[in-house]
Amino acid sequence: MNTYNSWKKIKSKYAQLRLNIYLLKKNTLTKWALYGVVLLTLIALIVPIILPEDVHVTQDANPRDKLLPPSSDHLFGTDELGRDIFKRVLLGTNISLRTAVLAVGAAILIGVPIGAVAGYYGGFTDELLMRLTDIFLGFPPLLLAIVIAAFLGPDLNNATLAIALSWWPWYTRIVRGQAVSLTERPFVKAAQAMGTPSARIILKHIIPNCIAPVIVQASMDIGGVILTIAAISFLGLGAQPPTPEWGLMVSTSRNYFLNAWWYSIFPGLAIFFTVLIFNLLGDGLREILDPKTRKN
């Protein structure tokens, strides 16, 4: 009986999924964006395993081959220390994606519960939490990263922390707005009327119903966070050499820009395409998850 029941449950979830897949298929741009994200994830997961890291990351890999233009040996050319830029860009995928997912994930973990609590309780709690949120919103991520870097020392992990700390208020805002309107919904009233404890209402009724816009926002934000990490590293406050981080690579390439165009172009393109892909996916997801913006 129990296996039968759980099978039913899966079937029901599956029907919903099928509709989503159908909508996804109809939206060509989103479909390609999704393929792109899958490809990026695969690169991020596999490349560090197949490329023995130390050879390409150590300071003086091949001083003889420094600043070679793109060729069949070195697809994207080499840098000032003779390291293969193509391999470094591939390795950088892991770093960018990992830090972005970590930063956004942390921001969601902080932001969503605060927003749900603020929206559900309203009144003074709401006022207090939202003003706190406003204070954090006042700091641009870069500025906060500089402060934290000055405090903890420049490091990729610190930069990730800084981004998470400056990003969560956006999620709080989204969730709070949703929570306020959900609190007025009859199903929440019904839960209150049957004596459900507030914590349970927030966990079971409020948060699951505001998760769709959070997912959409998160997929858009991943692009933004990758960009911010690159910017922080560019300023020398994030990843430190010899890490193959895209922003850091672009930063170093400035010195060789005039005679080695490939050095800055390829890491730059990597950043550009990754951000683009995530933004497209975010747009598509919004259309699929939010029926209001759905055409037809």
Binding site: S12, R185, P186, F187, A190, K204, H205, P208, N209
Partner: peptide, 9 residues
């Protein structure tokens, strides 16, 4: 339509 939580079975 709104008296039942849409995300619960």
């Amino acid at each position: 339509f709104w008296s039942l939580n849409p995300r619960m079975i």
